[in-house]
Amino acid sequence: MVQFFLESERVTELVTHLKGQKPVFAPHRKGRKSFAFERVEDAADVVLDYPRVMHSIRKFFLPPRETLMTFDLAENDFSTADVQPSDAIFFGVHSYDLGAVHRLDYNLGKGHPEKNYITRRQGAVFVGVSFEPDAYHFCGSVGIDPMDTSGFDIFLTKLLDGYIVEALTEVGEQLLNGLDLPAHEAGKPARGNFQQHIYLPQAKLNEVMAKSYDNPVWAETAEKCVGCGTCNLVCPTCYCFNVEDTVNIQATGGTRDRHWDGCMLREFTGVAGGEVFREHLADRQRHRVFRKFKYISDETGQPWCVGCGRCTAYCTAGISIVNIVNRLVGDYEKVAVTPI
């Protein structure tokens, strides 16, 4: 595969070139120190050097809120919302976030393939960018490298003064056509070191998790937790949702909408009649972590956590999923080596 060199100053030119072909979504500054994927209006606003965005590109395929159908109360009838393929370029995506999209492809495609998600996934082009692991990233521990190009159409690897640009698919190559870039001869740079590590690979974690249901870490974590659900809502592999009807003020009709939900919220398992099946925060903490390292992992052999560090970085209480998992590993090993 041919590699090109793109000077830092020419990133805007690349974005403009792409924007001329399809809508481009890329990281922008948001607030004081946050970043968010937004549609590019001015190529100069795009930020390629960012630690993480609050919501991964999942928000374009499974939006935080979406209308499933509109209904008419007089007619007692409905029409399904028109869902269109995204047909856009997602520019500046980190490898773990594409890994998360692939996991959602599995969950939403499995059993009953969901039209809304799969339709929006059509025509999505991914342009990746490498990143320097910060204090929260640990994707190396779940098998995702910051320079992992798999699944991307184009990948940008950060150098000191610019980027190595690789077209990895035909679509990527075509998008780069007409852009005059010099070839990149030298090799790729060394990747940055992670500051966070999970001690064991998933194959071993399966054994650890199987013995961790009654670990005291769940109750201890619950003491620090306010149950706000942030960890669920920022997780790029979470896809649980709730559905609610809203009636307009004229009381003539309304919409049936779905929005992201989270298993850390108490009402998540509540049924009419008052029963709540995961009543305690400790139960919900365990469920959240098992959703990432046990339940789907037992089925697929893969961790369902992509190591983005969001649940820890955005947790106001500073609860670290890496610390929880390592604590389970430590306790498991202690028991494993203790003679009976």
């Binding site: 499933l68 159908m69 409905f78 399904t80 490898s95 890994g99 692939h102 996991r103 492809d105 599995y106 495609g109 499995k110 009953h112 393939p113 969901e114 039209k115 998600y117 799969i118 339709t119 996934r121 059509q122 098998g143 995702i144 490298d145 992992d148 798999s150 699944g151 559905v243 049936r256 697929t300 893969q302």
Partner: peptide, 17 residues
């Protein structure tokens, strides 16, 4: 990194109507 195959658009169904 393992990729997970997504169902094709022709298999996708309107699940909620």
């Amino acid at each position: 990194m393992n990729q997970f195959q997504m169902a094709s658009p022709t298999e996708a169904r309107d699940l909620y109507s």
